[in-house]
Design a binder for these strands. Structure first.
Lengths: 159, 159
DNA sequence: AGGGATCATTCGTGAAGCACCAACTATTTA
DNA sequence: TAAATAGTTGGTGCTTCACGAATGATCCCT
């Protein structure tokens, strides 16, 4: 414990994260509407793509949403055939949730459509910086998913 | 295998941003409650610290909130004496919003209190990576806001 | 000076997200 | 068999937030 003895940097990213996420979400909504998706759906799909084959409860934990609300979310996605619920053979109580091919395709389309939104929000960052940002966010959200043990650490361009 | 055969960067940070912001916000709420603040207050304070002396309308633009809702937000902060509204001498219709000393202090306290929350959410990143993340987020959030005449020139610590 | 636009404010309304509770089914486990 | 677990459904209530309407103060233009 006691991992923060002294901190020369008071730099907390929380508020900035909140701020940028909001700005992104506002733009995403209008961009995603024609695709029949909402930002939260994208989040779920993204998580599923990163670590598919999870039960709904695990998903609830990852997304930190109430399990009862997960159901509705997945109902939406299943109705659009973007995900599939299959009973786990090991534990037949469990519904294993996985992205369908259609879902993966739609997710890609959505991400593509988000390019302009991202341009507006992350306009101050050049492509390399955005990629760095993506990698950091990705690592933070999955904890491990990204293999790539390469010391990427480009990022030093600033400062 | 080939890691990324398709488009070099389909990598959209939107969903990840949303996801992490949510996780951070959930933790922030409980941490901030004893301080009488909520995540959105922190966002506002952070923005004000970065580019103080803005009118409320400009603030509404930056935060992308409706101006009528900004009022309530600022009322909260003013009631706690974390900000001050002063009439602009140039345009007396305008209320120039600025962080008070008390507000800056409280913001620092809050950020300090958020350390554990951030540890939980960004646990997969080491300090250097977190600093990189902070810098990227910071640049992104101040870089594209409203290029109005402001040009506050934050120029915070070091670097 | 008059008229229109702008800033801030207040109030109200309605939609949406979400946490929470309760009850139910199917299945596993002790 | 009894208890625990995974999912589902339905309902309730709180909070956030966008949007509209009305007001007072002030600026700017003619």
């Amino acid at each position: 414990m006691s991992a923060q003895p002294l901190d020369s940097s008071e730099h907390r990213s929380g508020a900035l994260l909140d701020h940028l996420a909001r700005r992104m979400r506002l733009r995403s909504e209008s961009v995603l509407a024609p695709l029949g998706l909402r930002p939260r759906h994208l989040v779920a799909l993204t998580v599923l793509r990163a670590g598919g084959g999870t039960g709904q409860q695990a998903l609830a934990t990852i997304l930190e949403m109430d399990s009862t609300n997960i159901v509705g979310l997945l109902n939406d996605l299943e109705a659009k055939q973007l995900i599939e619920r299959r009973r786990s053979p090991e534990d037949r109580r469990r519904h294993v949730v996985e992205l369908t091919d259609n879902g993966a395709k739609r997710l890609s389309e959505a991400e593509c459509a988000l390019a302009t939104a991202e341009d507006e929000v992350l306009g101050a960052l050049d492509p390399a910086e955005r990629e760095t940002l993506y990698k950091l966010l990705s690592r933070a959200s999955t904890g491990t998913a990204v293999n790539c043990t390469e010391a990427i650490c480009v990022a030093d361009d600033a400062c």
